[in-house]
Simulated assay, not measured.
Amino acid sequence: MSESVSVRCPVCRCEHLYAAPSYPCECGAPVHPPLDRGGTPTAVAHQVWDEAWVTVACAVCGRRAQWPQPELGCACGTVLRIPLTDGTAPDPAAEPAASAAAPPRRAFQPITIRTARDAVTVAALYLRWLGYQDIRRADQRPPSGIGLAARGLLAQVDPTVRPASPRDVECLWLTAMTESAHCVYFSLAGYTSEARTRADSLGVPLFVLDLTGTPQPVNGLADDLGG
């Protein structure tokens, strides 16, 4: 369990008790961002993608991965960024040697979706679970939602309440074509029937993000990708 720390809002001086969420490492162990108990939280004026993710080492296997930067919403409307310690990773020389055969992939660990940022986080974690590393903000901003990119892949995450349209799917596909990359679409509100048909004809995997935080495949292409 992650320890709780006392956090004081620098704007309204209100006190909060905060515990960082845990995330599943590839080895199966829970990873907790190391909170700095003596640090001072900062107010977030503008969300910047590179600042919204931090590198944390798994305390069990030492694997380093990027996870969402701990943040807390104060009742006064201020978003507080919680300070972290440097964190420590086990000595690589002390890590067990990798086995010759790759272990079976563990089940995806969902994260409850409450905000648009949660939807983007779930999509990024799912892509990492599929094997894509170095997930980052896409260079080109899509017409709607948030664009994510990895080597050879472009993904669009639409956290709005409007079902994705054929044009949304086509724009993603065209952008991916210009970058010689595959593409995948995540939508919180689903897709119109025309969008599903268009995605099948273009070869675009479609996922729906349910509120439990588990991406659900919508077409056969998504089934094949997540299988």
Score class of each variant (00 low, 15 high):
M1W: 03
V7A: 08
P10W: 10
C14Y: 04
E15F: 04
Y18I: 10
A19E: 13
A19Q: 12
A20W: 10
A20K: 05
E26P: 00
E26D: 10
H32Y: 15
P33L: 13
P33K: 10
P34T: 07
L35Q: 07
D36Y: 02
G38R: 11
G39L: 11
T42E: 15
T42P: 00
A43K: 04
Q47R: 12
V48E: 14
D50G: 00
E51W: 02
A52L: 13
V54A: 12
T55Y: 01
G62C: 06
G62M: 03
R64Q: 14
A65C: 01
E71M: 15
L72F: 06
G73K: 04
G73M: 12
C74N: 06
C76V: 05
V79E: 12
V79T: 15
R81W: 11
R81Q: 15
T85M: 09
T85P: 00
T85E: 15
D86G: 13
D91H: 02
P92Q: 12
P92G: 11
A93P: 00
A94T: 13
A97E: 15
A101L: 13
A102G: 00
A102H: 04
Q109Y: 08
Q109D: 13
I111G: 07
T112E: 14
I113Q: 04
A116T: 13
A116G: 15
D118P: 00
A119N: 03
A123L: 03
A124I: 05
L125K: 03
L127N: 03
L127T: 04
Y132P: 00
I135L: 11
D139N: 03
Q140D: 14
R141L: 10
P142L: 07
G145I: 12
L148C: 05
L153K: 01
L154W: 08
P159H: 06
T160M: 02
P163W: 09
A164R: 01
A164T: 02
D168C: 04
D168E: 10
W173Y: 15
M177A: 15
M177G: 02
T178A: 10
T178Q: 12
E179A: 15
S180V: 05
S180D: 14
S180F: 11
S180R: 10
A181E: 14
V184G: 02
F186L: 01
S187I: 04
L188N: 01
S193K: 06
S193T: 13
D200P: 00
P205S: 04
P205N: 03
L206Y: 06
L211R: 13
G213S: 07
P217D: 07
L221W: 10
A222W: 08
